[in-house]
């Protein structure tokens, strides 16, 4: 079962700081899960667990298939061109011609032909994220992890990137986990939205959005999901306020 992943009772601590507490999350192949939560609650740590960059203090992380991550900070190699960066995702393909063909396909898919030999610093922020996305999708990886990939972009670019991501995933479907602060983004893209608590992170609530993807930001299902998530967040802060 490539492309599915399962976290069971996972806890993570950095020295005295408990970042994640007894968190369980199972994601099936092809599912798109969005993770939202307060800043510093442990979302990046969660992705690092799945990617294998961190080990859990207790609990188990099981992940089948090749995992690739799109990073919160710029993850493209600044010393490599667009083509060279994308080729990194195709290293296992021995045949040069085949590799070249796939790079060409990916460049067309993200619509940045003409920038093949540009360096990351010569691209706009949105283009950089698209290249990073293409690099992660290249060569049939199984799980795509995204850590606030669009948070540095302006609102309109973010909207466009959302549609681009939805389009790319419909062309090259795979399991995806998206960490975001943008609830609308989560509701539009994901099959399931997981809301985390303050640190130490646990799952506070899960929302399933059953309307099939792709969706528009103005679709009823999206607007309704945003309303439900916000209501849930408001209720909690309401109770917190009343207990003071």
């Amino acid at each position: 079962m490539t492309g599915c992943l399962e976290l069971t009772n996972v806890s993570v601590s950095f020295e005295a700081v408990e970042v994640i507490r007894e968190l369980s999350l199972a994601i099936v192949q092809g599912e798109f899960v969005a993770v939202v939560g307060p800043s510093g609650c442990g979302k990046t740590t969660l992705l690092n667990l799945v990617a294998g960059f961190e080990r859990p203090s207790s609990g188990s992380v099981e992940c089948h298939g090749q995992v690739r991550m799109v990073y919160q900070e710029d993850g493209l190699f600044p010393w490599a061109t667009v083509t060279e960066n994308i080729a990194l995702g195709l290293r296992h393909i021995g045949d040069r011609r085949e590799r070249k063909r796939q790079i060409g396909d990916l460049l067309r898919l993200i619509r940045i032909e003409g920038f093949e030999h540009h360096y990351p610093r010569q691209l706009s922020g949105g283009m950089r994220q698209l290249v990073e996305l293409a690099r992660a999708l290249a060569g049939g990886s199984d799980v795509l992890l995204m850590d606030e990939p669009f948070s540095a972009l302006d609102y309109l670019t973010r909207l466009r990137m959302r549609n681009e991501l939805a389009r790319l995933l419909s062309e090259m479907p795979r399991t995806a986990v998206l960490v975001t602060h943008d609830i609308e983004e989560a509701a539009q893209l994901a099959d399931r939205v997981v809301v985390l608590t303050q640190r130490p992170a646990r799952i506070r609530h899960e929302f399933t959005i059953s309307t099939p993807r792709p969706r528009e930001p103005t679709d009823f299902a999206v607007v309704d999901a945003v309303r439900r998530i916000l209501a849930e967040l408001d209720v909690e802060s309401g109770t917190e306020a009343s207990t003071k």
Binding site: A51, G52, F53, V67, M69, Y71, D74, G75, F77, L88
Partner: peptide
């Protein structure tokens, strides 16, 4: 992050 990418 570059070493994470390398590992990835």
């Amino acid at each position: 992050v570059y070493f994470h990418v390398a590992q990835n």
